[in-house]
């Protein structure tokens, strides 16, 4: 218990001291969002139709920036060695790191995406659907990103994105569908996302542990 608390506050401290961790996904997200209307169309009716997809793609891409470096610093500076030496539970470390990373990189984007009601003429009636699907979906994406980052520790970051993006495809499909359809189908897609979340957490946490371990062969 004491370990969890100390480790949690350590992670929070590390993230909050490095402001680029919070700011760069936000900047990237806003740039992406701005470019879509300029490149595709500025017609409000078309934009509001594409808005869920645009928001989801931008979230996925900006999530990609932060998530894949999740274990990198601890691997590079030797902290992971220390965790293995001290025989700490790697499962707890993985979960805490994913949660803290989600808090700092995904949560601000979810809050920010409610402003897309104005920028992309996102239908306000669907806003709750969008936010709830983002809330579940970004957690799943964080898990996939952590796995990609763990597998490609010490390798180039393009590889990590290449691993993470195909894995996140179901989340993208289900999430953007959930935020497109306002009325009867929303429950169906949210339920699917939720079951995907419960499937993801145990499997990917285990896979992450194995993936970190293999760098110590």
């Amino acid at each position: 218990m004491n370990f969890i608390k100390t480790f949690f506050s350590r992670e929070i401290l590390v993230y909050s001291k490095k402001s680029s961790n919070i700011i760069s996904p936000i900047v990237f997200f806003l740039i992406c969002i701005t470019f879509f209307p300029l490149a595709v169309s500025n017609d409000p009716s078309q934009l509001s139709r594409f808005a869920p997809g645009i928001i989801w793609i931008c979230i996925l891409l900006s999530g990609m920036l932060s998530v894949q470096t999740i274990f990198k610093e601890d691997f590079d500076d030797g902290s992971l060695d220390l965790f293995y030496a001290k025989d700490f539970s790697i499962l707890q470390i993985v979960l805490i790191k994913i949660i803290v990373n989600w808090l700092f990189s995904a949560l601000p984007l979810i809050i920010l995406s409610s402003s897309m009601v104005f920028l992309l003429y996102f239908p306000i009636s669907n806003l709750l659907n969008l936010l709830s699907s983002l809330l579940i979906g970004t957690i799943i994406i964080s898990f996939f990103g952590a796995l990609a980052g763990a597998l490609s520790l010490g390798k180039n970051s393009i590889l990590a994105s290449a691993i993470m993006l195909p894995l996140s495809l179901p989340v993208l499909i289900l999430g953007s569908s959930a935020s497109t359809y306002s009325s009867e189908n929303i429950g169906f897609f949210l339920l699917l996302l939720l079951s995907l979340l419960f499937l993801t957490i145990p499997i990917i946490s285990l896979a992450c542990m194995g993936a970190i371990r293999l760098h110590y062969e």
């Binding site: 370990f3 100390t6 480790f7 506050s9 350590r10 401290l13 590390v14 001291k17 490095k18 610093e73 590079d76 500076d77 030797g78 902290s79 060695d81 220390l82 965790f83 030496a85 001290k86 025989d87 700490f88």
Partner: peptide, 28 residues
């Protein structure tokens, strides 16, 4: 593992934290 003190080749210190903050969260 508590009876063993391990000092690695790398320092395992967080570069953007102060010395005190590092020591507060150091599991060694």
């Amino acid at each position: 593992s508590n009876e063993i003190f391990y000092m690695g080749h790398k320092n395992a210190l967080k570069e953007n934290l102060t010395v005190q903050e590092n020591l507060q969260h150091d599991f060694r």
